Amino acid sequence: MELISLSDIDDAAVRIRHRAQRTPLLWYPWAPPESPLWLKPESLQPVGAFKIRGAANALALLDENSRSLGVVTHSSGNHGQALAYAARAEGVRCVVVVPEGAPRVKTDAMRAFGAELVTVPPEQRLPTAEKHTTEQGLTLIPPFDHPHVIAGQGTVGAEILQDLSDVDTVLVPVGGGGLASGVATAVKEQHPGTTVLGVEPELASDAAESLAADQLVSWPPELTGRTVADGVRVTLSELTFRHLRIRLDGIVTVTEDEIRSAVGTLARSARLVAEPSGAVAMAAFLSGKSPAGRTVAVVSGGNVDPELLAETLTTGGSEHQE
């Protein structure tokens, strides 16, 4: 399994330009002077998350026979929505294997985009998706464990450098590692001196443990399922681990309280709706876990459960006032 390159990311940017938004960098005025902050709001994508980039790139590279049979994936929501959205636009059948307990706001959106949902226990996600490829001839487009998906996600990093070439630190959420792998590739191949840090919940910190041990460590669903950040409850693959081991500068972890506080702060101070997994990078910044300097935090998604959002808005937390 070869690592993706900057040229793979540049090619992906051309393929996805009619499917994914080129999201702006938004200056966050409440950051301290020594660490100015910009937000990369992937929550503004048409499906509410960065996943449209990788899904659209992978779908664009399928041959006609594969398109005629359809695609399948496994997802708690954001990748499933993204693949369903891209597949509907191109008239391709899409099946999504969903873990039990996936947020309704995400499963409803997948159905609205035309996906056929198959609900299974979390540990049966991948085996069930693979069964559909064998029995129905569908092409598996995984959420992160594929070079075409990683290359699509890497366009986030390429856009960051285009808009802020002298950025010192990029904070990026880590779940399965596809986004962090792509962003780290785009940034480090162009600006090796820029620090790229992954961020994950303490309750799902398999990536931090893997990098510390210098070998892939997988956590079972009963452990990763404890975090409120449902979008990062998955663990790294061999492919994403290899990318992060070579190209990521490190990983910091955040608590559940810090994640919830960041969701509320983004809504109140930045006027951005973020789901918990989309707010982990902001949580790292707000809790002082990133180095000083010009910083970009990737807000990876905004498909939050309405009740959870309301809860974060009414419980206070970290706030910046004029």
Rank of each mutant, 00 (worst) to 15 (best):
P276C: 00
Q153T: 08
V299W: 00
L313P: 03
I9P: 04
A129N: 11
G278Q: 11
P32L: 11
V92D: 15
R19K: 07
P142I: 13
R15S: 06
H146I: 04
I150A: 11
P173L: 12
G250Y: 05
L216E: 14
G182D: 00
I150E: 00
P127H: 11
Q321H: 09
S318Q: 03
R67T: 06
L37M: 02
L161G: 06
G302A: 09
S318L: 09
T169G: 10
T255E: 13
T185M: 01
K289Q: 08
A283C: 04
V296W: 00
L179Y: 03
V105E: 04
Q21Y: 04
R22W: 06
V217D: 15
P291K: 07
S76N: 09
F285M: 10
V174P: 10
D8V: 11
N303I: 05
G288T: 01
D108Y: 15
G54W: 13
Q124P: 01
H132V: 07
T128S: 11
V96S: 08
A58K: 06
A158F: 07
Q136Y: 15
V120E: 09
Q215K: 14
G157A: 07
H148T: 14
A292M: 00
A297M: 05
E2K: 12
Q215F: 03
V183M: 10
G302W: 02
R125N: 06
G182H: 06
V254C: 04
A213E: 14
P32G: 09
E130I: 08
E256N: 08
A279M: 01
A12V: 12
F144C: 11
L309H: 04
A270W: 10
E2C: 02
G137V: 11
A262N: 03
Y85F: 12
A186I: 14
A212I: 02
E238M: 13
P221T: 10
R104K: 10
M1G: 14
V174Y: 02
E256A: 12
A208E: 07
P24T: 14
D214Y: 06
V174D: 00
